[in-house]
Amino acid sequence: MLIRSKKEQELLLGTLDMLILQTLVMGAAHGHTIAHVIEHMSEDVLQIEQGSLYPALHRLEDREWVSSFWGTSENNRKARFYKLTAAGRKRLRVETNRWESMVEAIGRVLGNTGRVVE
């Protein structure tokens, strides 16, 4: 039971990491922007809990997939900006591939069972 929930957690965290990294491909951004971009791009389907964003950013920085610096936001406020590193870019490719192959696999499974049900 414990182990399974841990795996689930890992999968979700990995997904959030991937989404954050993907957001940063377009350039450096601060936390608030990242949250909004994810929400908008998914057309509000992925309502991420903004609170979990910051620990995730911290973790990514710890792994040196992103780097951060203080800058000024579009509204002239002091904000912490995050930027993709080379390692982060590589990581994103890995994560994206993994995600796509998984989606593909799930799709195939669903497609098959779908036909059986019909």
Binding site: H30, G31, H32, A35, Q50, Y54, H58, S73, N75, R77, K78, A79, R80
Partner: peptide
């Protein structure tokens, strides 16, 4: 402390 400032900034943006 830095995180606190960061979160404050986030709240300020969102409030705005």
């Amino acid at each position: 402390e830095e995180r606190q400032r960061e979160l404050d900034a986030h709240l300020a943006e969102e409030t705005a």
